[in-house]
Design a protein around this nucleic acid. Sequence first.
DNA 1: TTGAAAGCGCTAACAA
DNA 2: TTGTTAGCGCTTTCAA
Lengths: 341, 341
Amino acid sequence: MAVTIRQIAEAAGVSRGTVDRALNYRKDINKQQAERIRRIAGEMGYRPNRMGRALALSKNHIKIGVLIQFAHTAFMQRIMKGVDAAIEEMQRFQVEVIVKLIEDNDTDQTVIAMEQLRREGCRGIAMVPWNEKKIRDKIDEFAREGISIVTVNGDIADSERICFVGQDGFRSGCTAAGLMAEVLPLNKDVLIISGSPANTSNSNRAEGFRKEITKIRPDVKNIYIEYAFESNETAETICRKHLAAHAETGGIYLTAAGVKGVCKVLEEKKLTGIIKVISNDLTDENTEQLIKGNVQFLLGQDPYSQGYRPIQILFEKLVDGHDPEVKEEYTSIEIKTKYNL
Amino acid sequence: MAVTIRQIAEAAGVSRGTVDRALNYRKDINKQQAERIRRIAGEMGYRPNRMGRALALSKNHIKIGVLIQFAHTAFMQRIMKGVDAAIEEMQRFQVEVIVKLIEDNDTDQTVIAMEQLRREGCRGIAMVPWNEKKIRDKIDEFAREGISIVTVNGDIADSERICFVGQDGFRSGCTAAGLMAEVLPLNKDVLIISGSPANTSNSNRAEGFRKEITKIRPDVKNIYIEYAFESNETAETICRKHLAAHAETGGIYLTAAGVKGVCKVLEEKKLTGIIKVISNDLTDENTEQLIKGNVQFLLGQDPYSQGYRPIQILFEKLVDGHDPEVKEEYTSIEIKTKYNL
DNA sequence: TTGAAAGCGCTAACAA
DNA sequence: TTGTTAGCGCTTTCAA
């Protein structure tokens, strides 16, 4: 039978209340006494029973907030799967999760939603942020008030958020380059279609790709980069113009949305499978092209974990009082073909 | 606040004990009474609080057994990582996990270990089985006694196990074929090096690979298959002889151990990166060759989940009374290059 | 067939 | 600064 507070109390010759005070570093307890009790607990191999604690705390009714923009997009839907699983799990512990969905990438709306969550009593918030002073300031303000923030998918590194959960974009780009290097014929050109140069996640990917492909495939003649701003139409136009001007193109890497537009051009020109396409994220639109054979590889960033882990991290912080072990938790880089979807 | 048994008791004008009897379909309760209470609970939207239940049951001290052969191998070590994580998690719910490690693939020893676990009070067992009548009979016997079995990594499909957790070998083989098809030059031969023809997991992989590569790369001239019985020395000999006899070999697929032996030959003959190598499992030995560039792709079968999930499934069965949602839980097929290890 | 009550491990409010 | 005690939601034993 596992060690309980009661047993420690007996062993230390004090009451259960005192043991509780010692183990949880509360005020109003003699320092040496606390130290001694903690030592005894350690020696006895004490591990707190989560259920006892959660049950006792269940009258407090801990609340965790989740804030997601572009909630309608396929990618965010996949994050929501993880959120839903976490909510299901949290119910076990009587922890309430309040989800706020925002359709636009609007700074003011985001700040307002953060304040709403605070008003509703959330002591932890998981959110997809972007680099904007108003938001960073609000995060820091919340941190000072003792409301823990975990950033998801995007990060504001110099803020007081307790953890970031998302992909290492540079490494993702390198991985794409490694795959491209395997399938690209000799002496060809490569085209990178990125989202927006302002989006750090996209530019990290592009940069990782460019650096690595240059290193391992010195035969590649030219590496071009264009920006499609996550639009299929723009990507299509870019692709059409580029292929007209550069017949030697052997591979296309997309850091963000636009796959459908590119594939439309490839199908027209009967270049499917001849020009190799690698892209990011397992959206329905993308996997459709993967299954068709228009795309060779898709790189996933484990959106499920991006929904699940932040809530779990906040739970451990709020219920167990444990800070996250790392400040950046990178999700795995999944390589997907049509066979292992 | 969620609906509790107490509230139902008040609403129904009975005691909490009676509500408990009704909701859990216990004996010693008036049938109509029970029906009525359940109806009221349903109307009130009652959902049992799992912590309260687990806490109340914690004196029963649920035990789960884990049975693993070849525990010293690198692959099983990775499964053990998942087992350890599950044990850590289980401790929080006062559930004890008893692990039995067996060094050999010995039927009698396995049966003895199963009986030991039963004697020690395990009400659920996760085990790596193999197809042997004695073992299937023992699984069925345990099932009749109410001891739930989850098979891991290998399966005995026609037994009374409640679930299998492991890889879909055929699909893994297809995935390997898809990758091989991308990197294999035109008009080459392919060599499959399998483990043992008797091992169903290996032969499923080999069969999946053979079927798929035949379909999608009709230019492939010959597909050979040899058996290395998980030995590097045998694999080396096979590879050496085969390459001497078949100069047109462009790719090698290994369903099981032997990568190191193959790579030794490739290094000698300066064929690294020219003959494409794809293999299974992220052992240290294998990843070393992947990083060196001797192997293009490794396929993982998520051994961590194979350690973690079975215990979780047994936990849900024993504590919550929930049967697993599926009878076969296939772990994901991970594609790894040196970039996304 | 039912009700009353103890207790699982923990926290927190109140007393001392 | 400490001890005592009343629950949190549920199961289970003992009486009735």
